[in-house]
Design a protein around this nucleic acid. Structure first.
Lengths: 200, 200
DNA sequence: ACAAAAATTAATCATTTGATTAAAATATTT
DNA sequence: AAATATTTTAATCAAATGATTAATTTTTGT
């Protein structure tokens, strides 16, 4: 009996079923509250298969977490480092793309933040985000426009206005029917407001 | 052998020790990842005592959660409903008080949001917050000043700028030494910026 | 000081849970 | 078709975990 290092990449449907189920259950209940049996059941497979494909709950979780982490941050870096974009264009693109992403994945930010919170050490490595931002084109442009204000304040406000409604959704917008259209109309508002902030 | 319905209220130090330990461990690891043994050890008491005083892990958690929930929202409601305050005064007081609270309890918002996220049904009852806000003096004043903008957008932006840095702290400010003074200086910025937003 | 009540502990239970094993079923190769 | 490798399953394990019990210690009321 041999373990599947890279299982032949032929019929990945079983592996995909497990990943899909893991995504769903982990995202819903978080790592600690998730039982591997829940995932197996959701995937419609035997519990042992989960360990056959992914060695352990933790390994499986790491894949999901990495995927979600990337989803959450891949929006930012291509934009904040694109020297071809003006400051205003960066703001517009960032808000537009982020809110579109979050409308599709509303639970994304709170999931990632929650898991990092509970287990900060494990993700210390992945987190050079402060550095990545510090050296970005965006920060340079902000510093140039407003030398007397720490760029991190602008960025935090921009991200706060954009992400916070999704983070606080269960509290501030619990089962609010028009939430998505509210977020759509929020796109233009945030852009306008951030620009106003940078003039003020 | 009788259970302590309301244990005489004499020497509460044991009960307080348990509560204190529970506060610490629950806040750090979240409900699901917390072992009642961790709490007992942290409190320096026998595991059975925990159940003697609080019947169950869940009951104990509910107390902590209620306390934290109140901490997080008790700042808001006295202010947003104080008809004696102008709109500008409300904004100033809200930001000032909130950031001060959060500097003292940085983990507060992410803890509450995380637990609600994992177990939304349990806290459905406590959550008339959207309604409480909708009927507030603050919303009335905002609607009066800017009839064409949904007040919820202003409020979300205000809260986002204020709360988000603490929610995203582990990612955006991991072990940032000057975080607290950054938040102090942020008080005046947010106030200025929100006012600018409402003019824009 | 003594009895009753309350607080505390050590030992133990019953379940849950992540993981493994050994066998069976299915697919692949020759 | 036979042999080999891969995938899947049922059964089981060992550890962890929330909770209880029964006994012991401490406190309180008289």
């Amino acid at each position: 009996m041999s373990k599947p290092g890279q299982p032949k990449s032929k019929d990945t449907s079983t592996e995909e079923k497990i990943i899909g189920a893991a995504r769903k259950v982990f995202m819903q209940k978080g790592y600690a509250a998730t039982r591997t049996r829940d995932i197996a059941e959701e995937a419609g497979i035997n519990l042992a298969l989960l360990n056959y494909y992914f060695r352990s709950k933790e390994k499986l979780f790491e894949q999901i977490m990495l995927e979600k982490f990337r989803q959450l941050f891949s929006v930012i870096f291509p934009i904040v480092n694109d020297d071809a974009l003006t400051l205003d264009e960066k703001i517009e693109t960032l808000v537009e793309n982020y809110i579109s992403l979050l409308i599709e994945n509303p639970e994304l930010p709170l999931f990632v933040l929650s898991e990092i919170r509970v287990n900060p050490e494990r993700f210390k490595v992945t987190l050079q985000i402060p550095d990545l931002l510090r050296n970005s084109s965006l920060v340079r442009q902000m510093r140039e426009k407003r030398p007397n204000v720490e760029p991190v304040h602008f960025i935090t406000s921009l991200l706060g206005m954009t992400l916070f409604p999704f983070v606080a959704k269960p509290v501030l917008f619990s089962d609010h029917p028009g939430f998505n259209s509210l977020m759509e109309e929020r796109k233009t508002l945030i852009v306008k407001w951030v620009k106003a902030m940078m003039q003020a």
